[in-house]
Design a protein around this nucleic acid. Structure first.
Lengths: 334, 334
DNA sequence: ATGAAAGCGCTAACAA
DNA sequence: TTGTTAGCGCTTTCAT
């Protein structure tokens, strides 16, 4: 077995309390004593047992991260943002996938509690009352990330999806588009999509633009490709705004398959600015919101909650902007 | 505060040992007693404290996962595979990013030890002696994933990259390609790339194919695009095999920028079968090795190590195959 | 500035 | 089948 705090104490000729003090810098220790302790630590290559520490102090320095699916388009970037800031504040993360299923989500909040995490970062396609109940039972500091709580009961980090969609419609309107379609999951499935659709409809009406809704059973690439190829053959809009980048690529490929020119015949705007958008031809115009920042800001927010730092708002709204690429602008002549 | 095992014991009128027994199913308990305990647990909505449990039992049911970068192309799929199997065996994962830096990696192995993880899943672009030393110090069950240890000192899960590259060259040779280029990072940077390059050179020689090496400072899309556009203008091979899918897309775009037809003027084969390949036009032929399976198999392997299950080999080699798509086959006529 | 001692909430012998 | 009793390796009062 490896050394314990007791071994270090004996080696340094002090009590274990003193060793604990120098390790945690929790009280003043005479320079000379401190040195003896540090030497002993080095000599025994002692490393404190975080579990014992957690039991005694009731703080584990780990936070739970619950996402629908890390392997989904941008989630990994977001998780990376979380992890970087966590590291910065000496936290570790326990990562769990919920597949957006309520049962599993509730389960996970429970097991995270068992693991005595100091806090929770939570993501879900749609927040329900049951979530709120679960959070309250858990009695844990929680920050919602990219998951809107319409009634703002839980601290959260989001962008203004409604406004972003409005901005896109205005942007396309200014380019002379008279008909725009919104592509995404059916209403009531995903809060993000619902908000974006709402903004889309509002702005279209305001600008006198012909608004079309293309509803999908799910927001996968394959699904989008199929439906859009059909749609483009019957009623083709001048531009489409898709609920995410994956669908934007689907739109692009559907158009290509029908020999449509982008952006001449069809303009496309995506959502999320994932890596996909710059690695597509033509490159896609998209609403940017750095996924990395999303995670980073949420984690930073949580650290504030955990250390009782003053907080100005419990509903952080991240800025967004439209990043124009080839799918809404003619290519350069090469 | 919430209930402890002691509260449950009192409520059920038994000793805490008995409660522990029914919770862990670690000894036979009379049906009736068991029911009383279960009722008490439900009544108090008791949940065991995993930290206390970990301290007492010396097993935390958590494993550390060290990856270079979750947000890199396929890593998230791999992590998802790990997490699913971990869940299946009641483990949780602590996820850390090392950016492939040795210092950070050694550090992480240390802090994972402090956290008392039961085992470690480790990924790195290149394994050095220092890694082996660190692993030995740590005294932890470790499985390398997609990280080759040439001397097979550490249990690992890999594909045969050398053979896969050979297969690709044979495959392209059979299609009549007389000149093929390999695109990837310079030798000595990434073990995977080195192995693939080695197989490529060997097979090219064997088949009398003109082999060209295109060496990149790094394996990013942007970097590949730039270098390949130059290369294709001067010395264009009949086909390219790239060290990963991102570079395959770069090759595709470089070709498109030069108005080359794929696959008529240039065939392209990628490596890894990431989502990118099916979401590109033309769709890319690539070497498949399910990233999800990679993670899943590695995690399963680790659980075997942790429960002393018999193990047939400590060097698991996953199968690979070539998935042909449009970039090496003429498109269907629509 | 330092030490002694009491837990933190469990598991795991050892008894009974 | 069940209870008693030591710890696990730390943090944290409370003394000194």
């Amino acid at each position: 077995m490896s050394a314990t705090i007791y071994d270090v104490a004996r080696e340094a000729g002090v009590s274990m309390a003193t060793v604990s003090r120098v390790m945690n810098d929790t009280a003043v220790v005479k320079e000379e004593t401190k040195k003896r302790v540090l030497d002993a630590i080095a000599k025994l290559s002692y490393r404190p047992n975080a579990i014992a520490r957690g039991l005694a102090s009731k703080r584990t320095k780990t936070i739970g991260v619950i996402v629908p699916d890390v392997s989904a388009a941008f989630m990994a970037e977001l998780v990376r943002g979380i992890e970087d800031i966590a590291t910065m504040y000496q936290y570790h993360i326990i990562l769990c996938n919920s597949d957006g299923q309520l049962n599993r989500e509730r389960d996970l909040v429970g097991t995270m509690w068992e693991k005595q995490v100091d806090g929770l970062l939570f993501m879900s396609p749609r927040l329900r009352q049951e979530h709120i109940d679960t959070f309250e039972e858990a009695q844990l500091p929680i920050v919602l990330c990219r998951t809107d709580d319409p009634e703002k009961r839980i601290p959260s980090v989001n962008i203004n999806n409604r406004q972003a969609a409005i901005d896109v419609v205005d942007f396309l309107g200014a380019k002379g588009c008279k008909s725009i379609a919104f592509v995404g999951a059916k209403a009531g499935q995903r809060t993000l999509t619902d908000e974006r659709r709402e903004g889309f409809l509002l702005a279209a009406k305001r600008n006198g633009i012909d608004a079309q809704l293309i509803e999908l059973p799910n927001e996968s690439y394959a699904n989008g490709l199929e439906v859009l190829k059909d749609t483009f053959q019957s009623a083709r809009p001048r531009a489409v705004l898709t609920a995410n980048d994956e669908l934007a690529i689907a739109a692009e490929h559907a158009a290509m398959d029908l020999s449509l020119q982008i952006p001449e015949d069809l303009m496309i705007v995506g959502f999320d600015n994932t890596k996909l958008t710059e690695m597509s031809r033509p490159a896609l115009t998209t609403v940017t919101q750095s996924m990395y920042d999303y995670g980073a800001v949420a984690m930073r927010f949580l650290t504030k909650l955990l250390s009782d730092e003053p907080i100005s708002t419990y509903t952080v709204v991240l800025p967004h902007q439209i990043l124009e690429r080839e799918s809404t602008a003619p290519k350069f002549i090469k």
